[in-house]
Design a protein around this nucleic acid. Sequence first.
DNA 1: ACCGACCGACCGACTGGTCGATTTATAATC
DNA 2: GATTATAAATCGACCAGTCGGTCGGTCGGT
Lengths: 201, 201
Amino acid sequence: MPPIPELEVIRKAQILEAALKTISASGYANVTMDDICRAAGLSKGGLAHYYRSKNELFIAVFKEFFERIFQRSKQTMALYENPIDKLLSFDWLYDRNDPDVNVGYPVLFDCMSLAVREKEYRSLFHDWFENWVSLLKDAIDDGLKKGIFRNLDSESTARAISAVYQGIATRWYLDSASHPTEWAVESFKKAIKGLLLPNNI
Amino acid sequence: MPPIPELEVIRKAQILEAALKTISASGYANVTMDDICRAAGLSKGGLAHYYRSKNELFIAVFKEFFERIFQRSKQTMALYENPIDKLLSFDWLYDRNDPDVNVGYPVLFDCMSLAVREKEYRSLFHDWFENWVSLLKDAIDDGLKKGIFRNLDSESTARAISAVYQGIATRWYLDSASHPTEWAVESFKKAIKGLLLPNNI
DNA sequence: ACCGACCGACCGACTGGTCGATTTATAATC
DNA sequence: GATTATAAATCGACCAGTCGGTCGGTCGGT
């Protein structure tokens, strides 16, 4: 009998947290199970008790992380009323001091390179994209109803906006000296307004 | 004495080609030196004669590849006169039948995840970005001179356009079912025109 | 007594890099 | 032009180290 009924939930959370940090710091390819169990305060066998293989663990880590980011995006967006403000509410993605950002981008890039070849990771990405797009689409549909946007297809535009976010983020993260935060924020604002508004300023 | 004076050049090209294909097919993390020397038709020692370490070889592969893509971008762009056409001339990046594209994206994603942690790869990226941006900037400056663009900062806009290209490409490549080529081409056209033109259609 | 939780030594597979041996082709010498 | 010397080019067995996963065993609560 387990000493505490919720022990498995606690341990798994503790392992996922440790694994996320370790992967983010060292990179998927360099992380060993030893690193992770050390970070989680468990032995190799103890870790194996909860996640039978490296792949199983890593999938769980990525899933959990994407879910967290999605929830946060949702909550942040809900703080705004105006559709344009909603669509621009993701600027925390360009905040170098944000802990999710610091941990997130390294993991995201790792995950992308995995997704190229492993369909399990591709489907993870697909789900993430769809979640993100559905958030954006709702805001766009709202703006369309209120007549503040040009005539456009909301889903395809939502996909474009989400892609623009990520493209700018890639530059901003990998070559920060030439792509400062101000550039990132301004650029995505301009790009998004260029996509949505009936005429430019 | 070398049997043929240019042997080193020939061998290196042959190795880089084989390495690029192998890395693209299996992924940076999974490729072994054995795989590469087999693909290059050399022994382990033979490969070591030209590239002393895995890292040295891989850096060379990436450098060569980026250079090739840059040259091709330059040539393709030169086919057009109109600045807008020049800026839209990168649509071959969204062609699934293009050999450079098929080989390129897997390598690009690998390279990005490496760039997160290794400054050598980051500087590779930086150079690539700068090359790309300078191409775009020239076209934008031309458009500004001709008065067909709105008032804008050409360098910062060039960076934005290049980022948008890549962001859309990421979606298009990793989740093609939901992001077909038509979406990619249309989206980047709209985004770029939204960034540049004084008013939208 | 039983069982889940956990430990850590160990195994087998793999990998990057080394190194002495071998081949190959030119250059020097007679 | 035959022979020898020389140095690059190439080979592949081998080494040392790493890593994921296993497994027999311990411990503590029930």
